[in-house]
Design a protein around this nucleic acid. Structure first.
Lengths: 348, 348
DNA sequence: CCGCGCGTCCAAAACGGTTTCAATTGCCGT
DNA sequence: ACGGCAATTGAAACCGTTTTGGACGCGCGG
């Protein structure tokens, strides 16, 4: 059932039927009702391909992820973000098109998307320092919203981010207040912008108490369970091991825990752990009582909001860029406690 | 730059240019070369919206996931499967459109996809017993490939699955051979087809050694770290605790490990664990030496292959359904060992 | 009574490709 | 010289919508 058929069944022109369905004011309310009823009865669905050609809009948003997992992309965070964004698209009846980009030619992918007219805008995932995608997208004129920010990019652009610096600063201060002095950071790859910001927050907090950075207590890698385990294991074997860990992700935190317990130490008593909790659906931080003390911010909610921002950017292209900074909560769980007494150092 | 402009620039008709670009045989090779060169020079990209309308094909595959995470969908397995499928789409230049379906009206989503002509086929994720989506899709005539199978569905349909029954049967036998007699199963939700099959394999292996099912040793829930932890914890507190666990997913396995170590027991010595390893990019099972003994099958590869099967189904609609059963490897890691001696029971 | 604006509706032209059908040319065999 | 056929090209229809530019009738003010 297409528009023409429906129209002739009603004894109307396609024009009028189209207008009636799309809520244009110049059609008689009575005819509109008739049209609506008929459309419903024959359950007419306009052909999206035709709409897209006629209107020039794709009614779709693109998400591009690099093939190789080295880019922190094919990960649970991404899945939950997508789920959140998808909820928004559902409400606004946009489609989401996901593209895997070959590692080298990522810019070709964006250019093609633009010229083939497949999407109206894109979400930029996993921004890095001076991310080249931002000037590129601006140049080709494809609307976008960045999930995160890109340090070093001068021109303003639309983004939605968590205040990573502040979150990690607060977490570090919390540990310092508990008397910890040797605090380790298990970070993500530090060409990723969020990882840079988290490290900055961590270092700032230490510095404000007169503690300098110690490279041996800072690791930076893909945030897998295994890498968390390995890094923690190595640090715990140091002559002066850390009494507390800051892990950039729930999953690394699991690895840290494994290392701690494997050495016969007890989490929350001998060693404290704070994680960043993205509230991933598959990694709930306990039920009512949180297992880990954590900086918490729902990435699914971030997905919802980023998608909304993008849709708004698309519909009002002349407005300036939209920017939104979410604050993370610091929630207290069972994985932290006062620093254990050690020779020369006392808890306060 | 569109076709008409390019054609007039070349002094040719749109027809010929179109044919030249699409490799039709009836165009002079010399002109084809000219056209190709010009297209390249002006980097002409045909407008996808127009192609889709003209050809009636969407050149896109749909993946539908329910909103609520209760359905085992927004999970790392899904993310990796998608990544694999996306690689295939890239090669065949298909697009992937991801749709979040509201919990109630999932069938409306499929019907709409069909009548709006947005995709040429869909991958069915997370099939259950007698999954209603299979007859639905057949009815509306939308090509599909199921990732997994649906017990109870009579008519043949296309699917790609791992031999879950066999995998869990072998894993259970392996534990039995090590002398374990109290073996626990930490399964996924048992309305999911894969979970049913895994339990069957587990029970078959036990039965073949004359061991009956013990409900206290079988749990079935969403496969999160916390649920794995909770179930294992409860089982280890039984008067006759299990000496071995079979976990349906890497993540549950992490929870089991946490419970085991929290009770002061040692994995691989006091308690054995076998997991199912989907080779998730974010949960590598160790580097060279696997941490967990595991039944292993790459879900990313499954995604690649399922996508290929679907594309083939679409291009040759009259062929019968395609079916492919992948076998899982049983790999030996550090998490299993002979059953510890206990009163009355001896390892063999 | 005329002209004008308003409320409704429609025919036809986009949108940017593909595909059908027909036309032109040159060559071959007879 | 001519019919036939292959090779190459093009004009126009088509895909299913939206949108532009009227058309028509009616009531109303002048």
């Amino acid at each position: 059932m297409n528009l023409k058929e429906l129209a002739s069944k009603l004894g109307l022109s396609p024009t009028t039927v189209s207008r009636a369905l799309n809520g244009y004011p110049e059609v008689n309310e009575e005819t509109r009702a008739r049209v609506l009823a008929a459309a419903n009865r024959h359950n007419y669905r306009p052909n999206t391909r035709a709409i897209r050609l006629a209107t020039g809009r794709a009614m779709a948003i693109g998400h591009v992820v690099p093939v190789s997992s080295k880019h922190e992309m094919v990960n649970p965070v991404f899945a939950d973000f997508i789920a959140g964004a998808g909820e928004t698209y559902l409400r606004y009846s946009y489609d989401m098109v996901l593209t895997i980009a070959p590692d080298e030619g990522e810019d070709r992918v964006y250019r093609d998307m633009r010229s083939r007219g497949i999407v109206d805008g894109v979400i930029v995932h996993g921004p890095r320092q001076n991310d080249p995608r931002i000037p590129l997208l601006r140049e080709i004129g494809l609307p976008f919203v960045v999930h995160g920010r890109s340090t070093g990019t001068e021109e303003p652009y639309s983004w939605l981010d968590v205040n990573n610096r502040r979150a990690f600063q607060r977490a570090t201060e919390f540990l310092l207040d508990l008397g910890h002095r040797r605090i380790a950071l298990i970070n993500g790859l530090e060409f990723m912008d969020f990882a840079i910001r988290r490290r900055t927050g961590y270092l700032d907090a230490l510095a404000s108490r007169g503690i300098g950075p110690d490279a041996a207590l800072m690791s930076s890698d893909e945030m897998t369970e295994f890498n968390g385990y390995r890094a923690a294991r190595a640090m715990l074997a140091l002559p002066e091991p850390p009494s507390a860990f800051l892990a950039s992700m729930m999953i690394s935190g699991l690895g840290v825990r494994r290392a701690v317990e494997e050495m016969g130490l007890r989490v929350g008593r001998d060693v404290s752990i704070i994680i960043h909790d993205d509230e991933l659906s598959y990694f709930r931080n306990g039920e009512d009582v949180p297992i880990y003390t954590a900086t918490r911010s729902s990435v699914r909610e971030a997905g919802r909001q980023a998608a909304e921002m993008l849709i708004q950017t698309i519909s009002t292209p002349d407005e300036g860029p939209l920017q939104r900074l979410l604050e993370a909560d610091l929630i207290i769980g069972q994985s932290t406690g006062p620093a254990p007494r050690r020779d020369g150092a006392t808890g306060r």
